[in-house]
């Protein structure tokens, strides 16, 4: 898998992957993650600024993956959810820890984890995953 071994690709994405830095169109007040360079609503009338998300959100759907793509064999089973971020907009991400208790509607918060290891001698890709908040019922 060429793309996953790409060092510049990984490096370019580090800031947004580590810290949920997306963008916000100050014209229409819409937030985006991942960051975009053009607001799809306002197009050239829009003005995008860097935007830091808080790392809090809510699960709107999830799956437990048992048959992985190449490179994720040692992680199975793993949970991936679509998470609605507190500031608006959605992101797909791993839910870690208590995956037996994962449910739609539960609150999650971002935690820093390893996402992918490029074999034994390649780069370790870090980024944010999601953990169920306590007191979720």
């Amino acid at each position: 898998m060429v793309h996953k071994s790409s060092v510049p690709l990984h490096w370019r994405m580090q800031k947004s992957r580590y810290n949920l830095i997306g963008s916000k169109c100050v014209t229409c007040n819409t937030v985006f993650f991942p960051s975009r360079i053009l607001c799809p609503k306002c197009r050239r009338k829009g003005k995008l600024e860097s935007f830091q998300f808080s790392g809090k959100g809510e699960i709107i759907s999830y799956t437990i993956i048992k048959v992985p793509p190449e490179g994720f064999e040692k992680n199975i089973p793993y949970a991936i959810a679509v998470i609605k971020l507190e500031e608006g907009t959605n992101i797909a991400g791993h839910v870690v820890g208590d995956i037996e208790n994962i449910e739609i509607g539960k609150k999650v918060r971002a935690v820093f984890r390893k996402i992918y290891e490029d074999g034994k001698d390649g780069l370790i890709h870090y980024g944010l995953k999601w953990e169920l908040e306590e007191g979720n019922e």
């Binding site: 040692k74 992680n75 791993h94 870690v96 820890g97 935690v111 820093f112 984890r113 390893k114 996402i115 370790i124 870090y126 995953k129």
Partner: peptide, 16 residues
């Protein structure tokens, strides 16, 4: 540690 935790991830969480 979980399979996706190491010294770096522990350091980041403690650092936060």
């Amino acid at each position: 540690p979980d399979i996706d935790e190491d010294t770096v991830t522990i350091s980041v969480e403690a650092g936060k």
